[in-house]
Computed example of a mutant assay.
Amino acid sequence: MSKVVVGVSAGLGGFGALHRAAVEARLRRVELCAVLAWQAPDGGPGSRISCGVPVLALCRSAAVDRLREVLDTAFGAGTPAVTVTGLTVRGTAGAVLVDVARDPDDLLVVGAGPRGPLRRILRPSVARYVLAHAACPVLTVPPSPLQATYEAAHRRNSWRLPLDVRELA
């Protein structure tokens, strides 16, 4: 049976993708599968540094708590009018999402956040990865204009720049 799979993150772009995925699931009358990918601090399965089972259990538990928190924040007391299944999987976000949405009838929804040159170098794009590797249709949700305004205000505040009142108009 087909489903709508959405990558979950705690940023404004993640909430936008989550809400859009809920709309798509409601329109298609299918299940919404919210996926949070997590990685242990050891650097991966082939790493020389290895954390023990208790650390992995703590990381998994933290990921489950984070997923619950994001879903509660996104939908609040109201329900999204669709069946929502939460899934936490250890791995990189792009690979996990492609693996969960492997049926050609699925729909994969990801946020396409702002990508400056520095961000491209430091953190690969999940949206680009899933567009290149997914076996199903992919819907990328652009960042909200509110997110751009928020990030600009945050930069201005962190750099302690004065507010130009002309920006308020």
Rank of each mutant, 00 (worst) to 15 (best):
V98P: 04
T92F: 00
V82F: 13
T79I: 03
T85Q: 12
A93M: 07
D65G: 14
L107Q: 14
A81T: 07
G91L: 10
P114D: 15
R48S: 04
R90T: 04
G111A: 05
T92H: 05
A112F: 09
G91M: 13
A74L: 06
D105Y: 05
G116A: 03
L97C: 00
P114G: 01
A95S: 10
V70S: 01
S50Y: 07
L87S: 07
G94V: 01
T92I: 08
R119D: 05
S61M: 09
G86T: 09
R115P: 01
V98C: 15
R90W: 06
V53H: 11
T79H: 07
T73N: 08
A101D: 04
P114S: 15
V64P: 00
G111N: 00
L108Y: 12
S50C: 01
V96H: 03
V110C: 05
V55I: 14
V84W: 08
A95G: 12
C59S: 15
G94T: 07
A63Y: 11
L56W: 13
R68D: 14
V84L: 12
G111M: 02
A77P: 01
S61Q: 15
V98M: 15
L108C: 14
G116W: 14
R90A: 05
R119F: 03
V89T: 09
V82S: 00
T73F: 00
L118I: 05
G86S: 12
G113N: 02
A74Q: 06
D103C: 03
V84I: 12
V109F: 08
C51E: 08
A63W: 15
R90D: 07
R68H: 15
P104F: 10
F75P: 00
C59W: 10
R90H: 04
S61C: 05
V82I: 12
A112I: 00
L67Y: 11
R68Y: 11
R119C: 01
D106R: 08
R48Y: 13
R68S: 12
R119L: 13
G52W: 06
G91C: 03
V82Q: 09
D106W: 05
L56S: 00
S61G: 10
L67S: 03
S61A: 12
D72L: 05
R102V: 11
C51H: 09
G78H: 12
V109K: 02
G52S: 13
R60L: 07
V96R: 05
A74W: 05
R66D: 10
L87F: 07
D105T: 09
L108V: 07
R66L: 11
